[in-house]
Design a protein around this nucleic acid. Structure first.
Length: 494
RNA sequence: GCCGCCUUAGCUCACUUGGUAGAGCGCCAGAUUGUGGCUCUGGAGGUAGCCGGUUCGAAACCUGCAGGCGGUACCA
């Protein structure tokens, strides 16, 4: 075989693409997500939560109701069968693994057990904008106390987390007991009808009162002509539900919402129990310094249907987000949580009350990028040492090592392009400075340092190319011994 | 999952009733022996999402599939 060239026709060339719903992240986004995780976990630690990491995979039965069945093992989760035939699945949140961990280690844990966790979770479902199949969450949970004050503390924690991250957000709080009490007092008994009513209530923010009214009754036809079957409530039952849902109208303070709900739920014992919980949450929140502007009661918050047993809460972003075309982008909630008293019992049979909050790091980062723009979070590059000649490589590396030892990032250009391209490279990396050690500098014992930010600013006033080139804006030549100090002063001014 | 719209260069988009493709931006190079911007010049880059059909001829018309967007359902 003399011809070693590959035969293009017989070669398989895969298309370079990322899997649907999975995305690459570049430096600026990683930095932003890291910043969010760091600030939020700091707040969690200040509240006395300890770190816990659990694996990305769990046995599928530990993840709860989305068990892979033999026909469709991958609905909702990414599941695979281990070599011992057991089904494993990638976690879809951080709460189910916590329940498993708590059940497994219960006797050895200090109780109540307070832990935080962060990391990627995976959901095998239809992706969309701001909705990926892999994303980062950051959770804090308290396991082992049924006090409403534990819920209040979790809410205060979430509020503090958003505040520390510099993100304006509103926490909206409800209690499942209110919803259950309402349904019972209206005589809505069937599980299907209960769920239909809850789903209708959940859509208040999107469809408004008229839409909810239709969904509670016969049903609703949407813009695309699709018909959604309603809950089929009688008119006499729809009215109290609407009264209930409207209790928070007009940005009412927490105490006023409680008062209004007291009237709607006057003859429901479970509803009264829920109101008692919320009253204690309100008292605790006030003591913790969480105002009515930061956290409100909102009876239309429902969240997951078979999961939460008491308080539920959701965080809404108070920023106007627009995409590149200036179109409004609707972000869903950027965090949520609530009380789940039955999760650990799935493993032990013993009811262990628990409550927690999940901070939607990826979604929040996506929203912030839209608001702040790509450039705001752009990562700075290293100081770039221009490469003139193979034979002087030693001088370049020596300086690079010195710069790093002084605590700054540095890199010797290792491509094979000419000087112009190297300057362009440094520009594109957003480097603070480029350093030149050419023949002239080596002969004279000097270095030439160009402040790229300063040069960029000066260039705005120069239109003539010759003046730009010969003026060498932002550039100085100085003794080699002064290089580090000069670079320090440039980097410090960033 | 269901309904609707869309898919042409890396990106944003053109191409009068079917005659095998263009622009702007970006990228690379030169003008400028060792200088990122500006300006000018040149260059690379496309099996028109994929498969089939209609036709002498399809980017354009039709079927199917895939992907994207919007709505709806679901959302631990």
């Amino acid at each position: 075989m003399t011809d070693q060239a590959p035969e293009p026709t017989s070669e398989f060339r895969p298309e370079a693409r990322s899997p649907r719903g999975f995305a690459d992240k570049r430096a600026s986004q990683i930095a932003l997500e890291r910043r969010l995780v760091e600030t939020v976990t700091k707040v969690y630690e200040d509240f006395g939560f300890e770190a816990l990491q659990t694996p990305a995979f769990e046995y599928a039965d530990a993840l709860g109701k989305f068990l892979p069945d033999s026909d469709r093992p991958n609905v909702g989760v990414f599941a695979l069968q281990d070599d011992d035939d057991q089904w494993m699945a990638l976690r879809y949140d951080l709460t189910a693994p916590l329940a498993r961990f708590a059940a497994q280690n219960w006797d050895g844990l200090p109780k109540p057990f307070r832990r935080y966790a962060f990391g990627p979770v995976y959901r095998n479902e239809k992706p969309g904008p701001g909705r990926l199949r892999e994303f980062i969450q950051c959770d804090a949970d308290t396991v082992g106390t049924d006090r409403p004050e534990a819920d209040a503390e979790i809410i205060a924690l979430a509020v503090a987390g958003f505040k520390a991250a510099g993100v304006p957000a509103l926490l909206r709080i409800n209690n499942r007991k209110l919803l259950n009490g309402l349904l019972t007092s209206l005589g809505v008994a069937g599980a299907d009808q209960q769920m239909a009513v809850l789903r209708a209530i959940d859509k208040l923010d999107r469809l408004g009162i008229p839409g909810v009214e239709l969904l509670l009754g016969k049903g609703r036809k949407d813009d695309s002509g699709d018909f959604t079957k309603g809950a089929g409530l009688a008119d006499s039952a729809i009215r109290p539900v609407l009264d209930f849902v409207m209790a928070a109208e007009g940005g009412a303070a927490r105490s006023l919402v409680l008062q209004r709900l007291g009237n709607v739920l006057a003859n429901s014992p479970e509803g009264q129990a829920g109101l008692e919980d919320l009253t204690r949450i309100d008292t605790a929140l006030t003591a913790l310094g969480v105002s009515d502007e930061a956290a409100v009661f909102e009876p239309s918050i429902v969240r997951g249907l078979e999961y939460y047993t008491g308080a539920v809460f959701e965080a809404e972003l108070l920023l106007e987000t627009r995409d590149e075309k200036g179109e409004m982008v609707r972000f869903g909630s950027v965090g949520g949580g609530g009380r789940y008293d039955d999760l650990v019992a799935r493993f032990t049979g013993e009811r262990v009350p628990a409550t927690g909050f999940s901070f939607g790091v990826s979604r929040l980062a996506a929203a912030l990028r839209l608001v702040e723009g790509e450039k705001a979070n752009a990562a700075r590059g290293p100081i770039v040492i221009i490469n003139f000649s193979e034979s002087d490589m030693g001088a370049y590396f020596q300086l690079a090592a010195e710069i790093r030892a002084a605590g700054m990032a540095a890199e010797v250009y290792l491509g094979r392009s000419g000087m112009k391209a190297q300057m362009k490279y440094a520009d594109r990396r957003l480097s603070p400075a480029a350093v030149m050690i050419g023949g002239d500098e080596l002969n004279n014992g000097t270095v030439t340092i160009k402040d790229l930010d300063l040069g960029r600013d000066l260039a705005l006033q120069i239109s003539d190319n010759k003046a730009w080139r010969e003026g060498r804006p932002g550039q100085v030549t100085l003794p080699r011994a002064e290089a580090i100090n000069h670079l320090k002063s440039i980097v410090k001014n960033d």
